[in-house]
């Protein structure tokens, strides 16, 4: 399990909010920016979403 700082947890929660939303007009730029921020800090976002929010993509 990846250890996240508080600020990383906050960003991940915002990514998760977007993930769980069905809004097709979502803020894609914010979503990408948040993912890039965590990835640049060595966090595997896909793995973190799975570990913390049980969010995964079917064929990943």
């Amino acid at each position: 399990m990846q250890i996240l700082t508080e600020s990383q947890k906050t960003i991940l929660s915002e990514i998760a909010d977007i993930e769980l939303s069905d809004d097709p007009f979502f803020d894609a730029k914010k979503y990408r920016r948040h993912i890039a921020t965590l990835e640049s800090q060595g966090i595997d976002v896909v793995k973190a979403l799975k570990e913390n929010y049980d969010i995964s993509d079917d064929d990943d």
Partner: peptide, 15 residues
């Protein structure tokens, strides 16, 4: 901008 239902999934693949 209206994003397809698989847009987020595709974005993660190119992250």
């Amino acid at each position: 901008l209206y994003y397809s239902s698989k847009y987020k999934k595709a974005l993660k693949k190119v992250r």
